[in-house]
Design a protein around this nucleic acid. Structure first.
Lengths: 233, 233
DNA sequence: ACAGTGACTGAACGCGTGTTTAGTATCGTG
DNA sequence: CACGATACTAAACACGCGTTCAGTCACTGT
């Protein structure tokens, strides 16, 4: 059993283990998960062997980074969403966005996660879809959001759209590792206006394409099989 | 020139160089650009040394694949857009989409390109942005598309959104290498409806967020194109 | 004082990578 | 036929990777 009596839990962030983890987070965020272990060790000022000693393997290090960023996300989400199932507070959300310098590295790390795919990415996307779904449902109930023919599909699609744009933007114009917050601010400066525009006003003025699409890929009927198989055309 | 024969494999009548190129295209599409040269050589039924002999290096092979997919895109675009600068024909566009089985591998290859970033990705995205810009301008002129406060930014944002969703969807749910068309059809089945819905009807019912965003990030008064920030060290 | 334990390192190992080399078969052309 | 160029391969090479190993150091409990 390992007991860390000499160091308080808060000082744990100063241990070599934490230094390695943070260096890996930054490296992975900057260069992707193909970044060499030796580079991470050099960033942390330790030998490659020590990384293995503390984390067992590169996968173990990756896992520790995942857990760390999960922790950061949870603690950043907490003031915005309050208790689990709570509703987002927009003022706190903007405050969080303004504090983007603090969350720049974890954000870029997450973009690398979504870029690379894998189990954690699927899990996080599912979480975001669920969060978006409930938030949109609240909006629909309060009259702020237009109802959809398929709320689940819309929530997932919106997550894929916004996440994907961030991922590709990062792939196309890699963020300066020294100014991780600049990436987010630049993204906002470029896309905030068209984003707000498209999502409030729409894009197409006539519904011919929507009708054609709705006829070709109809929305799923109610999950209860009491409805007739024929959906509205 | 080349006559297809009833050989067990359609590749048998291609030259080794073309066979290697096609094998690389499929491998890169399936596994990304980190795919080992030896695997590509095995797929093509040749030795790794022959790949180098024909393409000089792995980068050379990658470049040949880029050129090939560029050719395929051009010849697929030609009946839809006609002469350079022509306007898209929607009927031909749907015909092209129906022929997705034929273009499945090049499409997935392109998604890998956008996922990995790099010069080709930037170039292709710029092309697509330009194409989208003119197409949207036509739509605005004909009254089919709503005007924007910043047409350039909107065109770029729409390209990033739709491309990004495809890239992330592929990263999260890798396509079956044996059924590359299934990925596209599945994507359509899942997202065509919410896509058409969002882009014709919009999402938000009141413009408070749009107003706030327009005040924080106003549209450029002068239509000077915003150059992407080059912050590489 | 003294074993014990964990942090830590330099050097090496095994492996997979892209690439090179030397050599063989095959083809086109004088 | 002769011969040079091309297609092609087996084997080896050089290198970077994650990982292992043997050993040193510092600290801790008995």
């Amino acid at each position: 059993m390992i007991v860390r009596s000499a160091t308080p839990s808060d000082d744990a962030d100063l241990t070599a283990r934490a230094r390695i983890r943070d260096a890996a987070l930054a490296r992975f965020a900057a260069d992707g998960f193909g970044a060499p272990l030796r580079a991470i060790a050099a960033d942390a000022g330790v030998s490659p062997a020590l990384v293995i000693h503390h984390f067992g393997s590169k996968d173990g290090l990756r896992h520790a980074c995942d857990e760390q960023v999960r922790r950061i996300v949870a603690e950043g989400k907490e003031p915005v969403y309050g208790a689990p199932g709570g509703h987002p507070d927009r003022a706190d959300m903007f405050a969080l966005l303004a504090d983007v310098e603090r969350y720049g590295v974890p954000t870029l790390y997450l973009l690398r996660v979504f870029q690379a795919g894998g189990d954690l990415a699927r899990e996080l996307v599912d979480d975001m879809v669920e969060l978006t779904r409930t938030t949109l449902a609240d909006g629909v109930a309060s009259g702020a959001v237009r109802p959809s023919r398929d709320e689940d599909a819309r929530a997932r699609y919106l997550v894929m759209l916004t996440l994907g744009a961030l991922v590709v933007d990062q792939a196309l114009h890699p963020a300066d590792p020294g100014d991780t917050g600049g990436f987010i601010r630049g993204y906002m400066a470029r896309y905030a206006l068209p984003s707000a525009e498209v999502f409030t006003e729409g894009l197409l003025l006539d519904a011919t394409m929507l009708d054609a699409v709705a006829a070709t890929w109809p929305a799923p009927t109610d999950p209860t099989p009491t409805d007739p198989p024929r959906t509205r055309t």
